[in-house]
Write a protein that binds this DNA or RNA. Structure first.
Length: 258
DNA sequence: ATGCCGTGGAAACCACGA
């Protein structure tokens, strides 16, 4: 089963690119972030016509997450991250699909840092870490994936020195990611390619993609149930070169069915 | 490298992103 994550940066503006990628890459499950569309403006018809069921958690202008599944039922298990009833951002949605739980997340960016937005990022991280422990305790196969807005290590940036004053690479952000993973998760792409440079995002400006000046911020965290089930993974880099594309590229893994 | 580009929504510019 192929599972992908893709920060589309506007699901409606990105629809031609999204549909082309769905057709060419044919993932079984897709987690989308940054829909930038209210609940009623999700392009359900086009997604359905492409062969996918969908659940989504929209929001006007910003954020927004969705889970798509091809020919499989989606049982929604949660929308919104627990731990702060005043947090109304659409940044988390979760579903049971084909015997596993898949959490789709869009972690706050946190810039400018320091400041209230950075505080929100760290608070969100804490809530995610606490909740992730509860997921692991259920002892069922779980995947947490999406845009974590964290560059985990220097290996994950072409030019780490460019990011030292950025919330994505602040020590607090990296520590938070480390603490989350330490709860018992496996960073799937890093496990598959321990020594490679892997990027999932390239800025729109400064010709970043042509220079391959990228960062790795879209991740797959797997529960131990996948230790012997993870067979492949990668980044669909070519999508980043298409017309009217997102600044992120889709990332995917392939897991064996039990 | 201080958003240089891109998206969405409101207003003919602004907020936000990473």
């Amino acid at each position: 089963m192929k599972i992908a994550t893709y920060n589309v940066n506007g699901v409606n503006g990105r629809l031609p690119v999204l549909l082309r990628w769905l057709k060419e890459s044919a993932p079984d499950v897709v987690c989308l972030q940054e829909l930038k569309a209210p609940q009623e403006k999700f392009p359900l018809q086009a997604i359905t016509d492409a062969g996918y069921n969908a659940i989504w958690y929209g929001q006007k202008s910003w954020n927004g997450v969705a889970i798509l599944a091809k020919g499989m039922e989606i049982h929604e298990t949660r929308r919104g991250l627990p731990g702060d009833p005043e947090d109304l951002h659409s940044r988390y949605i979760e579903a049971a699909i084909n015997g596993m739980v898949i959490g789709c997340l869009y972690l706050p960016n946190g810039n400018p840092a320091p400041g209230p937005k950075f505080d929100y990022k760290l608070a969100w991280f804490k809530r995610l870490t606490a909740y992730s422990s509860k997921l692991l305790k259920k002892d069922i196969p779980v995947i947490l994936t999406g845009d974590f807005n964290v560059i985990p290590t220097e290996q994950d940036a072409k030019k780490p020195e460019n990011w030292v004053r950025d919330a994505l690479f602040f020590p607090e952000s990296r520590d938070a990611y480390k603490k989350l993973v330490a709860k018992g998760w496996t960073d799937a792409l890093r496990k598959l390619y321990p020594d490679e440079k892997i990027y999932t995002f390239w800025d729109y400006f400064r010709n970043a993609f042509a220079r391959d000046s990228g960062i790795r911020i879209d991740h797959f965290l797997l529960s131990h149930h996948f230790d012997k089930r993870l067979v492949a993974g990668g980044v669909d880099r070519e999508v980043r070169s298409w017309e009217k594309t997102s600044d992120h590229a889709p990332v995917w893994i392939e897991v064996k069915d039990r």
